[in-house]
Amino acid sequence: MEPIAVTVRGQGRWVLIHRCLKCGRLRLNRTAGDDNVLLLVRLAALPLTMPPFPLQRPQDD
């Protein structure tokens, strides 16, 4: 299983989304008190580093 994303569920609880490396199945797992907060924030910010569209304005020729 590899962590691929973080989501927030009721009462602001963070949940990790894991994907199975063999079959691709997704699983939700609650975060624990001893989880590395910096790694959780990095995982949560990952979509901001790879937007599905270009951020620059098209250049005029």
Rank of each mutant, 00 (worst) to 15 (best):
M1N: 00
M1Q: 03
M1F: 10
M1H: 04
E2I: 15
P3A: 11
P3S: 10
P3W: 03
I4D: 01
A5V: 01
V6Y: 00
T7I: 15
T7A: 04
T7E: 07
R9Y: 02
G10K: 10
G10A: 14
Q11K: 14
G12E: 02
W14P: 01
W14T: 04
W14G: 03
W14I: 04
V15K: 08
L16N: 06
L16Y: 12
H18S: 05
H18P: 00
H18G: 00
R19F: 00
R19C: 05
R19T: 08
C20E: 04
C20Q: 08
C23Y: 01
C23W: 01
R27H: 08
R27L: 09
L28H: 11
R30F: 03
T31G: 06
T31F: 00
T31N: 02
D34K: 05
D35T: 10
D35G: 11
N36L: 02
V37I: 12
L38A: 13
L39H: 00
L40A: 03
L40G: 02
L43M: 14
A44K: 09
A44F: 06
A44P: 00
A45K: 10
L48Q: 14
L48W: 08
T49H: 09
M50I: 07
P51F: 05
P52Y: 08
F53Q: 13
F53E: 10
L55Q: 14
L55S: 13
R57M: 15
R57V: 15
R57P: 06
R57Q: 15
P58R: 15
D60M: 10
D61L: 11
D61P: 13
D61F: 06
D61E: 14
